[in-house]
Structure formats: structure tokens, C-alpha cells
Design a protein around this nucleic acid. Sequence first.
DNA 1: TTATTGCATGGCT
DNA 2: AAGCCATGCAATA
Length: 890
Amino acid sequence: MASSSSAAASPAPKICFNSHCKEQKSEGPRRKGWRLRSGEFADLCDRCSCAYEKGSFCETFHSDSAGWRNCETCRKRVHCGCIVSASAYVLLDAGGIECFACARKSVVMTPNQMWSSPLVMPPQLSERKDFPVKSWKQMTGPFPGQWRQAPHIWNTSSIQSDLHQRLSYEFDRPNSTERMISGGRTSITAQEKKFEDLPEKIGSSSLNHVARDRFANGNSGPDPVSAFSTFQREEGNADGLQDPGHLVRDNDPMSMRKGGISDPCSTGSVDSLPSSTLKEDPSSLLIGLAAPFPPPNGAKDLSRVSTTQPQRQMAPQSSKQFYPHNGIDGELQAQMRNGRPRVDARARMQLLPRYWPRITDQELQQISGDSNSVITPLFEKMLSASDAGRIGRLVLPKKCAEAYFPTISQPEGLPLKVQDATGKEWVFQFRFWPNNNSRMYVLEGVTPCIQSMQLQAGDTVTFSRIDPEGKLVMGFRKASNVSTEQDTQSAKAGNGFSTSTEGNNKNLAGDSNANLPLRPLKGSAESRNSINTADQATWSKFDKSGFIQKDGPAARSLQGASKRKGSTLGPKSKRLRIENEDSMELKITWEEAQELLRPPPNHVPTTVVIEGHEIEEYEEAPVLGKRTYFTTNQAGDNYQWAQCEDCSKWRKLPVDALLPFRWTCSDNKWDPERSSCSSAQELSPEQLADLIPIKTGASKRSKVKVEADNIEVSDGLDTLANLAILGEREALPTSSQPTTKHPRHRPGCTCIVCIQPPSGKGPKHKQTCTCNVCLTVKRRFRTLMLRREKRQSEREAETARKQQQLIQSPEMLPPLGNDPSSATPSIKTSPQKVVVNDDGVVEEGSEHRKTSPSPLKTQIDLNIQPEREEEPSPKSDAGGMMRLLRDAAS
DNA sequence: TTATTGCATGGCT
DNA sequence: AAGCCATGCAATA
């Protein structure tokens, strides 16, 4: 195959591509075989072509090759390893392979099982791209009715869409991968493994640069569009898979997993595998399974199916083809080794979310017009003031330009034909400016187009590709639609219109899985509906599952709009953007807070498993539970450890014990002997320290450092503090007016900090105030002081002991000042007593009471940050109680 | 003077 | 901290 690869590059019409063909040089018509890396098809003689189409190619020509295995289901022999048969089988989780026919059956059975089918589909997947490979010019309009698929295809697509969701989710949660799809997922992994070795074998061979070299100069061609098309052709090659017509052959190969070496074909494949194959991503393979119903006959039919396949449209995917300098190979290989789909991750890396296309169904329909075309959304961009200005230059996101537009080596670039939604063709100059050792890509001459679309700053233009024509299409979306689209995820689903693509696009936006099946624009209403339903369900599910789109469509657009000096943004956008950022903050802190959630009393949460994640659903709002630590003893018994709120002793409890936020020894119904604070702790602090990640005898909170010498407080502290308040008080007074004084707090935050008036403003709370804030402050102080006192007494004892030692053996006395306990002379000489009275008013030691009256002494100054109990209030003095406490604790 | 072009700057991610 | 990119602006037509 290695040699055949070059043959493919310059096909010799008279020579059968099949090197095993005995009639290689025979005359006669040539027919297309599998697709080659170059994008061409293997030119086969009539005989070989027949064998290929009948699925007996490997049987005929590779019978002596290694790699034959038996289908685990039907026991048929299947060749695993050569390019012709690469898609004829599925790698099973438990080992072995399954022929396509059998795999297909299981695919049809359940969506989950479809995970195992990807392997089967690659060819189909790639097929779409195979099809238009000849030449974009040649391909224009040759395949009418591509979108006219049987409804079941669309049903399938919907499933596929779902898979995309799941896959994307999985990408974000790599650890969940295996759990998620115990069945088929492994197949994917196995499939990926097929390629795992390739990078190493191939290294950075020139194969990786084929596309690069070929398209290094986009203006080499007479027609920019054709250059672009060629570019796309290369992308198509990326699939590196042969014609789907061979999917259902039962002959053939051995798994390439074996290194693809044992079989001559597979060995050759190192060479013959498209460079892009190395970069091929399983996700695309996944897409492939969208068409579990291969056409009953013939490559053409298959092609049609493939055209309906989800498209491998995302930037990520194709970008790899077109990234001359992206330097992702290493990452790619790493991903391969990780056994995870690669393209999507790469996609995320390479295209900023705000450029992910999220073309709506209407827009797609608008773009596609009446043609039977496959629309591949490429990217979109919100117009800046500059873009929409009269200057007529549309700045293109660099990565988008490099990924989807022809490569240009000269700043002048080249003219690029772009069609708008009305079918009108525009020619822009696609060029770049050198900029900081980089490039800035622009489309020049867009003013007429922009104006014809009546676009302005804030509106969004979308770039798509129409296949098989390979045309660039420019769509648009008015900014006024943003809100509508914002609601798309949930609301639009219910409007009975246009959701299939929305689902897809959501997918795009949410996870960068670009290869989405763009619904049949000309498909029947039924088929479309079926897709819609599925997609809706999918998204609905993900919404419920807590799947957080880090950069949802609305957020993205708003982000984009809000960029740069706000020139294109209204205040509203800015506000929303902030909220979006805050939501991220919330996410982070929320994760921390998760540990504290407990089911509400008398309510058992419903555990649902979504995408491999067990999620507890509470019919009532969960309550805050006590932080506990789970341990396993030597006998393998599991326990959890909780600390008494009053005495700070650690108690061992059953693992299933759900503790209220404020839990004390008296609540220890599991261990009557230790149901009182007077009971000794079961383990010594040292023993405990070995078991649980806490500072024994110090903090009861692992994250929140109560120690005075650890002033830094985790980011989640504010939230935890807030939760703590809520947990104890259930609800804040409605009179609490949220503020957002803290940058990290979102509007509406009712944490103790945010509900208090700004520093220096507002009335101080009185001693007798029993508001939520005051109670919390008092309680915390009480706890803190008690703990401090306890520690202090311990320290005193220690000091006394050392002094005793010193008296007994003066030579052992360390140099003055080196004794940690002497670091604070005041403590050494006059340990402080800090008492909190019933009103929560702190009574300090006499000395310090004079010098640094606590802000709580007479009035509670809520302007202190209660979460940072150890930190002295700005209003309290430097030598005040808090510092004293810190010193005492150190 | 105005429009265009190419580059530089600096805010922002 | 690097790189992207929105925009400003000088040079040129």
C-alpha cells in the first residue's frame, strides 16, 4: 500500500490500483475503489472493483495476509487491518471483533450499544467527504437528493446527536468515560488504539505535512474557491477510510491494534493511512455510527447515506488538517494515548468557543435554500464596530481563518468567493497582516455584503460550507436574536420548530463536537420531528444533569460582543457577561459546596445516573450537612469521621450517617459511649491525622483554614460561609438586600458579607441584635474563642512543661527566641483569656481589652469579614484581639 | 480633503 | 504571560 499511495497521488488510469491484481496493466474501464489519502479513489479494474463492491476484496486478494479473525457473533471471517477492510468490523470490549453486520444489529438495539458501532461507521462518516473529493467544481450538483433520506436515518441522527452530547460531556469528564459506556465506549477506545501506535511509527513523517505542503500556498490555484475546495478535500481524506461500500464485508482483517504490522496492508497503512488518519479522531467515528443503516447496495447509495451523516464540521476537526503551525501533534498523540476522542478536545483548544458555529435551523435552511446540500457550519463571529464599519474589513479569528480558509502565504492573500444566504456570491479578499510575529486575518471588501445583510456591530456572521459544492456560505444573525437563541436550549424546543439543528448547534456550542448531522433540510416533516425530539430530550437531559456549558451560546455571543472596549456592546450585554463570569465562579465554589449537601430530612434523594455520573435529585432543597471524612480501617470497614461542633472531638460514625450541619456528640446515636462531649476521643490526634486530612485539634473545616496563622482563605470560603448561614438559619430575612461588594460574589448573593452594608455605611448592629448576621458572627466567634482558649491552655501546659524541663536541665534551653512558644512574649508572660458572653460579646484578656477593644464589644461591626475570622478587622487595631488570637494560635 | 491601506497599539482572553 | 484582535493612526492614493 505504501507504493500504492503514491500511485494514488498520480493515478494511472490504465493500471489497476490493486497491487495484487494480476491484470494491473489491463486495458478497460476503471472504477472507483476505496478512497485514498489524496482524496482520490483507488482506480480499480473491473474485476477488482467488483470484488471490492461485493465485499470480497480481502477474501480475494488478502487471503494470505495476516489479520483474519472471526466475528464473535456470527463467526464469519473478517479481515482486520487493511485499508479496505478497516471498517468491516468492530472491536469488542471483551476482546475479539464483530463484523459490521452483527455490530449493526446491536447498534440498532439501543443507543448505548451504539457506542460500539462507531468503528463500523468510520467509512460512512468519511464518506460524505469522500464523495465530493474529485473536485469541487466537478462535484457541483451531481448528487441530487442527498438529503432525501428515509426517516430512519434521521432517527438515527438524533441518536447520534445524543451521542454527541454524551461524548462531549465525556470529554469534559474523562474519568467518567469508562463508567459511562462500559459497552461500546471501549470500542472506541480500541479504535483509537488502532491509531495509537501510528504516530510513533510515523513520527513526524512527511505525511503529516502533506496537506500543509499541498495547500501551503492557497493562491496557487486559479480559483480561490477551488483552492479552498482542495483544502477541504484534504480534510475529507482525513478520514482515511475507504468507501463505505465495504462496511458489510465479512472477510478480512486483523486488528490494526496489533500494530497494523502483521498484515502487509496494515503495514502499508502506516504509509497509506492518510496523514490525516493519524489525526483522525474517534469522535468523527462516532458520528459515523449515525448511519447504522448502510445503504443496501452500491457505493453510491452509501455515499448518499454518508452525506446525511453528521458532518465532521467542527473546526477542530478540520483544523488539524489546516493547521500548519498549530503544533498539536504532541497533544494529539497524548490524546490518542489517553484513548479519548481527540478532535473535540483539539477543537476546544483551537477555536475559541465564541467562534463555534451555532447556526439555527432557520439559518441553515436559509443558507441551503432549495438545494440538496450539506451545510457544514464552520464558525461565526460577532461583528465588531470595525467589522461592521465602513472600512469594509472583517477581522477573522486567526484560528478560524487558518482552519477553514485556504492557506495564504502572502499578505495579499487571495480572493475568496462567498455566497450569502440568498445565493448571491461575493468575492472578498482574504488576506492577513503581519502582527506581532503573528498574523491578523481579514476579509476585505465586505462592506457591500454587510450592508446588504443590514448588519451592524453586535450582529453575527456565520461561515459555513456547503457540500458537495464546497462553497463558502456566509450567513448572519442579528443581535436582536440573541435573547431568542439564549432561550433556545430550553424554550425553543417547545416551539415545534427547528430544533434538530439547534440541538446540534447546541452541541457545537457546548462541547465542540463539530461533526453534527445537520438535519435534512429537505427531509420530511416526520423525520425532522423525530430528530428534534431526540435532540430536545438530549439537551433537556443535560440541562437537568447539571451539564454546565462553560460557554453557552448566549454567553459566547455576549462575550464576543462585550469584548474590546465595549464598543459593540450595550450595558445589558456587559451585565450578562459579568453574570456569566460569575456563573463560573459559582460553579467552582459550588463544587466545593457539594460535599456539604445532604438530603433534606425524611427525604431520600432519587439517584439518577446520567452519563455515568450519579446524581442525587432532591425533591426538596438539600440541606447542608456536616463535613465528614471517610476512612477504611484495616479490616476493610468503612467509617466516616465527624467532629463535634461543641467539643471538637472526632467521632467515628457509620458511612451512611447523614449529619446535620451542626452536629454534636449528643447526636451520636451510633456510639452511645461517645454520645457526650465528656467522652474521650476514640483516637489520638496523631492517629486521626493519619486518617483524615485535617489538622487535628485545630480546624474542623478542611478547606477553611481557621488557624490564625493561615490567613489565606480559600476562594470557596465565601460560599461556604454563606452556605453555613443558610444551613443553620434556613433562610435569610427577606429584608436582606443583596449587595455585590465582593467581586467574586454574584448579584443576589446573600452571604454574610454581601448582606451587610458597605464598609463604613449603614447602621451598626446592636449587641442585642438577633439578625442572621449577628447570630452567625456571634456563634462563630464563640466557637472560635472556645477553640482558641483550648489551644491556648494546651500551649500553656506545653510551655510549663518546657520550662520545667529547662529548670531541670538548663543546658537544654534553646536560644532565646527560638522557642516557638516564646515567639509571642505577651502570651508567654500573660496568656490571654478571651471570653464570649452570652450575647456574643467578646471579653478579652484585660491587657488587650484596653488596647484593642473588639469591634464586637459594644457593637457588632458587620463590616468585618466574618469568614476571615482570624484576620483582624480593618477597624480593629493591629494589636487587637484578633492578632492576639493569631499569635496565640501560632 | 477624503478614502484606503498597512501597521502598531493595547485591552482582553 | 502570550497571543488574539479591536481599533487607532500614519502613510499613501
